[in-house]
């Protein structure tokens, strides 16, 4: 188990929960599609959950329920123990507490300057000007952009920088739960690493609960405490990274890209070499294989 994961899971007060949440698109017509069915999960205070699933598995629909953009056909969403739909006039405050950053967020930038764009969320919260300014400064730091970016036009930035500004716009609201939908989509390997690093350090600094949607197991495994696997509108697994990877073969059947190193381990097992299947980093594989190699070489001598 990852360092720190245990602490987070021991401190098990759920911050965001769903109870039998079901959502059906175009209900009542003959083209009904069940996007999510009977989803009951508890997201714990301060943990980083990776949500993975194949395209169309319902992960994007699920996160739209977390900040009340969609209302479940049946079931409830609880934030800090209370139903988010209990008081309709407080829906906006739910959106400030659960900050959702959608796919390709750079396309939602609209202000003249980076600072103004990041300030859009905090201003909607009705904060004072000093507070808004502080949050903009902090958010720029979180995403690793220097303060000199504040007065630039967001439309003059590179793709990766735009993405980071957009994410900063959500972080500036200082939500209790930060939800990121495919924050690495369409970025080059260096950009992906930067964004993942940025999310991990943001969480370390703020202690905020983070949900990371991705279809890349590799990205998620590196930083998540627990993984929620969605498959055909249902929750397939929701467990620690190690436990989920022990189902590596099933994950592959669901059409998920498991890390290359895990694939290698699986094919070794097929060849009858007894190595654990739930390895997902090269280091772990090295540790598992080293004793064998040593033994092998001794045998040769």
């Amino acid at each position: 188990m990852k360092k720190g994961t245990e602490d987070v899971l021991l401190n098990n007060t759920p911050i965001l929960s769903t109870e039998d949440l079901t959502y059906i698109y175009q209900k009542g017509t003959n083209s009904e599609v069940t996007a999510i069915q009977d989803v009951s999960v508890d997201i714990l205070q301060g943990e980083l959950v990776g949500i993975i699933g194949h395209t169309g598995s319902g992960k994007s629909t699920l996160i739209e329920h977390f900040n009340a953009l969609k209302k479940g056909t049946s079931g409830r969403v609880l934030l800090d123990g209370s139903d988010i739909w209990a008081d309709k006039s407080k829906i906006r405050s739910v959106r400030f507490r659960v900050g959702v950053c959608f796919q390709y967020p750079e396309y939602q930038l609209f202000e003249e300057t980076v600072a103004k764009d990041i300030a859009f969320g905090p201003k909607n919260m009705g904060l004072s000007e000093e507070e808004v300014n502080r949050r903009v400064t902090d958010a720029l730091t979180y995403v690793g952009l220097s303060q000199s970016y504040a007065e630039k036009s967001p439309f003059d930035l590179s793709g990766g920088e735009k993405r980071r500004v957009a994410i900063a716009g959500i972080m500036a609201m200082e939500p209790q739960v930060l939800v990121l939908d495919e924050p690495c989509a369409g970025l080059d390997p260096k950009g992906r690493a930067t964004v993942l690093q940025m999310i991990a350090s943001y969480r370390a600094k703020t202690g905020c609960t983070v949900l990371l949607v991705s279809h890349s197991m590799e990205d998620v495994a590196a930083i998540a405490d627990r993984i929620l696997v969605m498959n055909r509108a249902h929750v397939a697994f929701f467990d620690t990274v190690d436990a989920v990877f022990s189902h590596a073969e099933e994950l592959q059947e669901m059409g998920l890209d498991i890390p290359r190193i895990t694939q290698l381990m699986l094919s070794l097992r097929e060849k009858g070499i007894d190595v654990p299947a739930n390895l997902y980093t090269v280091q772990q594989a090295y540790d598992a294989l080293r004793p064998r190699l040593k033994g092998g070489s001794r045998h040769a001598q």
């Binding site: 739209e64 900040n67 953009l69 906006r92 959106r95 400030f96 900050g99 959702v100 950053c101 959608f102 967020p105 396309y107 939602q108 859009f120 969320g121 909607n124 919260m125 716009g169 959500i170 609201m173």
Partner: peptide, 13 residues
Amino acid sequence: ERITNAQKARGAD
């Protein structure tokens, strides 16, 4: 629809 949702998530009214 996509942009509206994104701005709603930032508290646009």
